[in-house]
Design a protein around this nucleic acid. Structure first.
Lengths: 231, 231
DNA sequence: TCCTCCATCTCGGCT
DNA sequence: AGCCGAGGTGGAGGA
């Protein structure tokens, strides 16, 4: 890991062409040849970058580049796509290298699969007398998140999303259409379950006779584990 | 802009909970209170981060944290959502600050809007005698990229994508369905134009009577501007 | 390997 | 401010 702070211009050519005018920026060069160009703002996305696997070549500046004020020129190229990033360094304020080693990586919790697990475990959230039938029930057009039976034994298909948009309703609609062709399952009703359901999605769902269910992640987690959280 | 290299652990709670075990990493603290945690690998996405607007509070480590080896503790909190990132710093190898100033920002070229502009200007790319009718023609379900007339005066709807997938074909199909309900426009035929059209998308489009057109970006740009490129 | 879907998406445009 | 679509999307999981 090499960190350089310098005034520079950057030129990218690949899927698109883009350039950065002269300004002072932070250049992060990683061990896999990738490079990030960051300014003091924005979010985690760099102003410009090159993804790994890439290789950096330190070039002699051409006369033209020297006249423009460049003291060093880096050419970073992607090994497969041929995308190229050219950095013209003018004044270098800092240039340091560090040994970081391999990172153990991020440990996550709380994504859609976890919501699905918890809803499967707490299937009565859907209503009294509900029983879990299947998870990830495979159909020709994809897996239905949850199939359950209500207190009358009727089949219920559940689509789970973190944020429920119209696309999720469309997805569930396609599943319901297919499942209702199966005489062993029909009639199948639908439940659209999400941490947050957008108004348009709710309208569309209810218009199609699909029930909407807002999931409270924290509450479900509370029910789920009496074991205290590890951190 | 403050750059810190240190062994640390990181804990995030917000939309999800996640943590990073102890390892040496680069911490980038920006002027807007945001922070990025990078390792020597991966792509431009940090292992963990906090988006602006955020504020950093340097805390005294609790006895427990001191026992675990933490010398300093940062609490970075998002001002609106309440998301929190806690960094426990153990050994600090480097800690430097730099004044970067406001960045002039990235100048882009070659995106979909540019393709659309160029195709509108070079509408005969679609065929001899074609004339431009409308750009961004608004309908109830969204804007149609281009409406043109062919040499016979029939209406042609064009959907432009950089990379043409099935979703783009679906989109165009919806537009065509709607436009063909308008007796003033019908019959409307479709053209799916993209720099690259995926086989599945091509099959679907042609199956629906939609013509596929691969756009050569460099060639179009060559036609577009006799002015030589600036870089 | 390719393809598909998710994301603490980010980012821009528009209403 | 919210909504929607594109991205040099990146990243993960399944066929």
């Amino acid at each position: 890991m090499r960190l350089v702070v310098a005034t520079c211009t950057v030129q990218y050519t690949g899927r698109l062409t883009a350039h950065l005018p002269l300004a002072k920026r932070v250049l992060m060069l990683k061990g896999d040849g990738s490079i990030l160009v960051h300014s003091d703002g924005g979010s985690y996305k760099p102003l410009n970058w090159m993804s790994p696997p890439a290789s950096l070549e330190e070039c002699e500046p051409t006369e033209e580049q020297t006249d423009a004020g460049a003291s060093r020129v880096w050419k970073v190229t992607h090994k497969k796509t041929g995308d190229a990033l050219t950095v013209q360094l003018h004044e270098v304020e800092s240039d340091q290298s560090f040994e970081l080693g391999i990172d153990p990586g991020l440990v996550k919790d709380g994504v859609e699969s976890h919501l699905q697990e918890m809803l499967a475990d707490q299937i009565e959230t859907l209503g009294d007398g509900f029983r879990l039938w299947r998870r990830e029930y495979m159909t020709a057009i994809g897996p239905v998140d949850i199939l359950a039976q209500d207190s009358d034994g009727a089949t219920v298909a559940v689509e789970i999303k973190r944020r429920g948009g119209v696309d999720g309703v469309e997805q569930l609609t396609r599943y319901l259409e297919l499942l209702n062709r199966d005489p062993k399952l029909a009639p199948v009703s639908g439940v659209f379950a999400a941490q947050e359901i957008k108004p348009q999605a709710r309208t569309l769902a209810e218009d199609r006779g699909i029930r909407c269910l807002v999931l409270d992640y924290d509450e479900m987690r509370g029910v789920e584990s009496n074991v205290p959280r590890l951190f």
